[in-house]
Design a protein around this nucleic acid. Sequence first.
DNA 1: CTCATATCGTTGCAAATGAAATGACGTCAA
DNA 2: TTGACGTCATTTCATTTGCAACGATATGAG
Lengths: 158, 158
Amino acid sequence: MTSTAGFDLDEFLPYRLAVAAQRVSAAFRAVYGPRHGLSVAEWRVMAHLANAGPVSVREVFARVAMDKPKVSRAASRLELAGLIEKRADPGDRRLVALSLTERGRAVMTDLVPLARAFEAGLLARLTPEERAALDAVLTKLVEAGEETGGEGAASDAL
Amino acid sequence: MTSTAGFDLDEFLPYRLAVAAQRVSAAFRAVYGPRHGLSVAEWRVMAHLANAGPVSVREVFARVAMDKPKVSRAASRLELAGLIEKRADPGDRRLVALSLTERGRAVMTDLVPLARAFEAGLLARLTPEERAALDAVLTKLVEAGEETGGEGAASDAL
DNA sequence: CTCATATCGTTGCAAATGAAATGACGTCAA
DNA sequence: TTGACGTCATTTCATTTGCAACGATATGAG
């Protein structure tokens, strides 16, 4: 009879969003994980490198919504696996320039079409209106989260 | 020149969804966390109990998208904090009946309005069309994730 | 009744995680 | 040039996580 009654977690937006993201992420991991043994963090680093070329750890972690140690460790594993290369930046030796190796590029050549197909499979379930709305909504929710205090990651400057 | 070029992670749906969920979750945690020292897992258990009354661990973990040990540990912490009560089910002594204590109910009486206000604040940013679309889209994405293999949690029966 | 099998919740353990500390390097004012 | 301060990446440490194993209880076949 208090206001706690009638509160259904299943209809609570933050919860629903978290579950949807978790399910989609797990489904996608089932696509790229078994194929090349990548974790989510590793996939993100690879994806960013494939698109952006040689880039520092800072550059990656600022753009990829992961904290610094996570990017650093993912990069180390990827280097060990021979998929990326770490070399000191000639201009600023604090920086580590990350880039895909030949094998890394091959992996991404294999994976990118799968990623696109996976995304297409998701979007195919939605109407055009829903697709447009989803795009707008995700942008707005991310903004809202940032403003309200949910920095998520990327906290080196405080 | 290969198909890996032009793949922008920032526009990849699974990634965008994960980031949005993470940001929203962090923002919401900033609302309920400092107030009563709850983690996400603990909040979910509390929310479910507030709505559903005495319930077994199995019941909770099946409905709350967390694995069994996570629910178990969250329940232990909540019991230690005096917010919930664990007692053996009289009919089946394998089961543990979880229920809110008086203090637990008080916490939820405090939190549920905050949760509703937080959600309202998010929804206020969306147009009515976007709200409707979001609802449909989240449902579809969860279904898609389940079908494609992303079970997320709830894996005791396989 | 008895034994095999299934279910429930907890616990062990290895791996992942995040915050803060560390070490290496750059930059800027004096 | 020197020295204080800021930045970059890694590492350290305590905590959290997820999976598998475990003990306890329940159920059903013979």
